[in-house]
């Protein structure tokens, strides 16, 4: 980056101080109202009876198995959607073909489908009264009300996250750098690994973290296909609901706080990493 010596140019590159700080204040005020307050409410409720009460919740077998199930589901779902996201973004961002907008819309679709419906469609497919129901029953294969159904519903709901994170960025970046690499004799895969991947790494990381967070937090769709059997098919979000409905508010909010904490820690770590190394990366990476 060239040094800017001309003072008027420098001032034209950033906003006046007052604009800067009012923007920051507006942004923070909005975030506090919309996100911070609910978060604070969750932690307040969770800690209402002190830290000792938390121990009781997390010592419970049902809580433990809910955590394990949730992690298992995320561990299957995220890699699947990661591969899909990268492949879809590559095809969409680097090539022109008819029907592209339609394809993007299809990828967006799971966002717009009500969680209620996302669960329902798998019941229509694999439920006892569903399309494949009789066949599955005859072969004693369980999909809904078991792990595969929960994974399917979660995969459906979280499918767009990584792709959607990558597509605008890769479109923005164009194809010039990869083409240059190919001209220099690199193979396609090598061009992807050495040129594309560094360019998209933060977006990719965002996407994975979001996909993971959503996979662990998904409630509506999973609620339809889970069957809610305590200690067997209950994920953490469903366990929150169960505890809440048992008037165990401290327990419910404690598990909710754990989910929030998991997300905050991973995302915070990412932000810190990016913050520490961001400047070094910004110099390189881009151009």
């Amino acid at each position: 980056m060239s040094e800017i010596s001309n003072p008027t140019v420098a001032s034209a590159l950033s906003e006046p101080r007052w604009v800067r700080w009012s923007l920051i204040l507006i942004g923070l005020a909005y975030l506090s109202l919309v996100v911070l307050l609910p978060l604070a409410a969750i932690f307040t409720e969770a800690l209402r009876k002190g830290v000792g009460a938390l121990h009781e919740v997390f010592a419970d077998d049902a809580t433990y198995s809910a955590i394990i199930l949730t992690l298992t589901v995320a561990a299957i779902t995220v890699p699947l959607n990661l591969v899909f996201g990268v492949a879809a973004a590559w095809a969409i961002a680097k090539f022109e073909f008819p029907g592209k907008s339609l394809l993007i819309t299809f990828i967006d679709l799971p966002f717009s489908v009500s969680p209620v419906v996302s669960g329902l469609i798998f019941v229509l497919l694999f439920g006892a009264q569903g399309l494949f129901g009789p066949w599955l029953a005859a072969n004693d294969i369980k999909i809904i009300f078991a792990l595969p159904g929960i994974v399917l519903a979660t995969t459906f709901v979280t499918l767009p996250f990584i792709a959607r994170e990558l597509i605008p960025l890769m479109q923005e970046q164009g194809t010039a750098e990869e083409e240059a690499a190919l001209t220099l004799g690199a193979s396609g895969l090598r061009a992807f690994i050495t040129v594309t991947l560094p360019n998209i790494r933060w977006a990719l990381l965002y996407g994975v973290l979001l996909c993971n967070a959503r996979a662990m937090g998904e409630f509506g769709a999973v609620a339809v296909v889970s069957g809610h059997i305590r200690g067997l098919t209950n994920t953490m979000p469903l366990h929150v609901e169960i505890l809440y409905n048992e008037y165990n508010f401290v327990g419910a909010f404690a598990v909710a706080a754990l989910l929030a904490l998991l997300a905050l820690v991973t995302l915070g770590a990412k932000s810190l990493l990016e913050w520490r190394y961001g400047d070094a990366l910004a110099g390189k990476g881009r151009h």
């Binding site: 996100v35 973290l209 967070a213 959503r214 929150v240 997300a263 905050l264 995302l267």
Partner: peptide
Amino acid sequence: AMVDLPFALPT
């Protein structure tokens, strides 16, 4: 990090 919380929290 906080921005993503609505994704992560069960609805």
